[in-house]
Design a protein around this nucleic acid. Structure first.
Lengths: 238, 238
DNA sequence: GAGTGGTCTAGACCACCTG
DNA sequence: AGGTGGTCTAGACCACTCG
């Protein structure tokens, strides 16, 4: 038995939560029940549950049990806030239009992040999307994904915000980390056209690198945001 | 004994790390040693150490021991990257000039975040700082701190980046969370003057709200950044 | 009162690292 | 070989929640 019991139990429960065997707000089996059904002690069960708490997949109530958390929404990586609502307001719905369908191609010259040899070798999947908040274009997004073990990717439909969802479901690829460089610049012609701005308007420009649960596998994005009416909003801990 | 043993040990070790009793890179006493000196079992010791690991104050090496982590640098909340270095480069040194010393005053009208009644009642400490990277002004910062249990604060010298350091050392106040709204705007006259920019130059504008280990105690900042030569850079997990 | 998670004890064996 | 952290057992008592 090379894989520790607590990790096995953690994986099992995680799958059951993600696949809906345990719904949001539902109670997990109690620690004592899990002890009995898996023939392990409570310390081991608690170790597994601690992992789930750390991942915010569950939270615990003394005297009640372990409750499945509401599905977290996109980490605040891509949320917009109305100019006036500022805080606590409901987020406006975001739609997405694909300007350039995912295609395999070489990396651009002078790419904005240094790439590993392996990344350069395999090339990348490139796609271009335009995001709308409240039916106004707010963000132009260029995304680059290394073509590593992603067979069949081009066939999936990325209609909505489903890029990360697709990667998660089909390739077990999760985003665990984001690094970003942010600047305010004067938009060029193509950008002003796409975002419906005047010449010379200021836009937010962001280079992003997403880290994943595969070591040395990163996803890159270059973003241009019209922040005239909506602010780009995010929050983070620690 | 109302406070659990593992929390007591956690607090003790945390203090000893933060006050330098255990230096960066040093080994903590082994788990068995801690068991002996504190007359508790290993499970309890490990619970305390797990907390420290979660806070990234230590990391563990099997067969070696528990090592004190390098002091983390300001959470990437305020780091700038040279335009060309982009990633992995050493950060340029940041200096700070105080434009307006901390003074107690009422909150501005139409403050950028909704305030609680208690916050409005007590007023705020207001200060204004200008940050330099490589001797160029890059960021104009307006900060508002509710005047709650901060007696003596005005006497401390905030010469450098020491605002959060001061709050931690003297008031045991830690930043645990940041929420920010980011926009690209055209700088007004005062901002261009302070940041040494041309009229009409785009600047990054950020509203920030810092959450702390005191519930319902927030610190607010409004930031204007010149990103012509340096990008505002941050990274976050999960 | 019965069940839940929170804390804790007193052991054990293992894989890993260093002298 | 001896010490370190990683995993695990088999108990125990407590505070809390709910019917």
């Amino acid at each position: 038995m090379s894989i520790p019991h607590y990790k096995q139990l953690h994986q099992l429960l995680k799958q059951q939560i993600l696949t809906g065997t345990f719904q949001e707000g539902a109670l997990l089996p109690s620690e004592n029940e899990l002890c009995a059904t898996h023939h392990i002690t409570r310390a081991t069960v608690r170790q597994a549950l601690d992992e789930l708490v750390k991942e915010k997949l569950i939270y615990k109530h003394r005297g009640k049990g372990s409750v499945v958390s509401p599905r977290r929404k996109s980490l605040g990586l891509l949320s917009f806030k109305g100019f006036s609502e500022v805080v606590g307001a409901s987020h406006t719905p975001v739609n997405t239009e694909i300007l350039h369908k995912p295609t395999i191609q070489p990396w651009p010259e002078d790419f904005f992040y240094p790439l590993s040899e392996r990344e350069i070798e395999v090339g990348c999947i490139y796609l271009e999307r335009l995001r709308f908040a409240d039916n106004h274009p707010v963000m132009l997004e260029y995304t680059y994904i290394p073509t590593i073990d992603l067979s069949g990717f081009l066939e999936y439909n990325l209609g909505k915000d489903s890029l990360f969802e697709t990667l998660h479901v089909h390739y077990n690829l999760d985003i665990i980390n984001v690094e970003q460089d942010i600047r305010a610049i004067v938009a060029d012609k193509n950008t002003t056209d796409q975002l419906g701005l005047m010449t010379g308007a200021p836009v937010l420009h962001i280079y992003r690198r997403y880290g994943t649960n595969r070591t040395d596998f990163y996803i890159y994005s270059s973003l241009y945001c019209n922040t005239t009416h909506y602010a780009l909003s995010n929050s983070f801990d620690s």
